[in-house]
Design a binder for these strands. Structure first.
Length: 433
RNA sequence: UCCCCAGUAGCUCAGUUGGUUAGAGCAUUCGACUGUUAAUCGAAGGGUCGUAGGUUCAAGUCCUACCUGGGGAGCCA
């Protein structure tokens, strides 16, 4: 990278110096013979002041021809000025157009409908709010990787193309040579379990796919999931790691993303309140509580979105709901020895009504019981032969969970809809851009 | 798959019990202005009212179907 250019974010350290900056025109204001270019370069927003008698007639013509989103290079002196957003501005002495932009740039500094914005997602990404979300997302991903690296977890990348295996929900399928259909992975967990028997503590982090016709603010058909798997760790240890992880990630965002969270107008005290440990609520108790609050939920039902909100309303931190009925959960979860109607699992529900961000469990480690559960679910034992090998050859207590990245981003950013939490959201009706 | 809602200018919307030539703001073009903060002021251009039928003397407005989205449910991260 050439050092003769400065990023906008670095300019407060260059007051009094002449600098060159490259970026895009975000806004234009003219007032006779003095004009303002608001420029963005991804690192920040800069007010550039153009005065006709300084830039001369040629420079003024260059300015007059500028349009929104033209890419430009400007040169000038950095000066502190209270009237400039961010406190510094550049007095332009020279200006070069890099790439012009027609006057019909679709996204204006005003409100747009969501349909229009999603159709122009490739351009919408340039707006300050979307830039802020993208930066918070990247920080969350980095924090997660750091958290597991510090704890000596090994990152294992699992296949996206799989044979039919995993959970019951919808699969995307595609032809796969002479092997019949391949399916896009909806979890890396089963592969993660195999890797845990090799490496001890591992995690996977990658895209995952659900062909469900979900139309809600919490669902995408393609989303990123982080799935740790830990050998010789039970359900209690599983939850302890989860709450440490969430506390770590939230703290990192508060430390390093305060500017982005300010753009998003995030209620910071609500994030600052996120401290482990988080409450554990037994599913059976949760049902009683919910019925007391007027919910129609019956023991045995999974908790609906409204039930989750009701439950979380009493807490400032995320909560765990533990030990759901067997019928409501996946076949690989270990039966609860204290209550065989239930399994050793935990869902983490985020505060402020953001809902489930983590689903985790201790895995069934008994070969016979696992085989029976696969049969009970109407699944093919042959398809799971390699998975059963993990119980056949040196079975081990192990636990893990799946963290939904976009749901976590949505919650930490305090934004209303999951589709803003990923650069190019894939939903039922959106495959482009 | 089910329930609800919406489609009028490039964008965001208004449009009365059906009634003259379809309205505004923003954006665009032209003009004014030496410190603007989504600048302001003046002027101009810009429409197959989602599509197809139907009712009516008359439909942006009422009816039917379809299309395209949005919100929610279920499922889950």
């Amino acid at each position: 990278m050439s050092s003769q250019y400065q990023t906008i974010s670095s300019l407060p350290h260059h007051v009094g110096e002449t600098v060159r900056v490259r970026g895009w025109v975000a806004h234009l204001r003219s007032s006779g013979k003095v004009a303002f270019i608001v420029m963005r370069d991804g690192s920040g927003i800069l007010q550039c002041v153009v005065v006709q008698k300084i830039v001369g007639d040629t420079g003024w013509e260059t300015f007059s021809a500028l349009t929104l989103e033209t890419s430009v290079e400007i040169e000038g002196e950095v000066r502190a000025d209270a009237r400039a957003p961010g406190g510094v501005e550049v007095g332009v002495t020279n200006m070069i157009v890099i790439g012009t932009s027609p006057v019909d740039y679709p996204i204006q500094p005003k409100e747009h409908g969501i349909d229009f914005l999603l159709d122009h997602r490739h351009l919408w990404l340039r707006s300050s709010r979307q830039v802020a979300i993208a930066r918070v997302r990247a920080e969350i991903e980095q924090a997660l990787n750091d958290f597991f690296y510090e704890r000596k977890f090994v990152r294992v990348d699992t296949p996206i193309l799989t044979s039919a295996i995993g959970e019951r929900s919808g699969l995307f399928s595609t032809e796969y040579f002479d092997e019949g259909n391949a399916y896009l992975a909806q979890t890396g967990q089963l592969y993660g379990e195999a890797a845990a028997a090799a490496l001890g503590n591992i995690y996977t982090f990658g895209p995952t796919f659900r062909a469900e016709k979900s139309k809600t603010r919490r669902h995408l058909t393609e989303f990123w999931m982080l799935e740790p798997e830990m050998a010789f760790v039970d359900s209690a240890g599983n939850m302890q790691l989860q709450e440490e992880m969430i506390e770590y990630v939230v703290k990192r965002c508060i430390e390093r993303c305060s500017a982005e969270l300010a753009v998003l107008e995030r209620d910071m005290p609500k994030l600052e309140a996120i401290r482990a440990p988080f409450p554990r609520i037994d599913y059976t108790d949760a049902v009683t509580t919910l019925q007391g609050k007027g919910s129609a939920v019956q023991w045995g039902d999974d908790l609906g979105a409204e039930d989750e909100s009701l439950l979380v309303a009493d807490y400032a931190t995320p909560i765990f709901v533990v030990n759901y009925p067997k019928e409501a959960k996946a076949f690989y979860m270990k039966e609860n020895p204290a209550d065989p109607r239930t399994v050793l699992c935990s869902d983490m529900l985020a505060p402020e009504g953001y809902g489930e961000i983590i689903g985790g469990s201790q895995r069934e480690d008994d070969l016979d019981r696992m085989t029976q559960r696969i049969k009970d679910e109407g699944l093919s034992v042959e398809a799971y032969d390699w998975y059963l090998d993990l119980r056949r050859y040196g079975t081990f207590v192990h636990s893990g969970f799946g963290l939904g990245l976009e749901r976590t981003v949505t919650w930490i950013c305090g934004i209303p809809h999951i589709r803003e939490a990923i650069a190019f959201p894939r939903t039922m009706y959106r495959l482009r851009p």
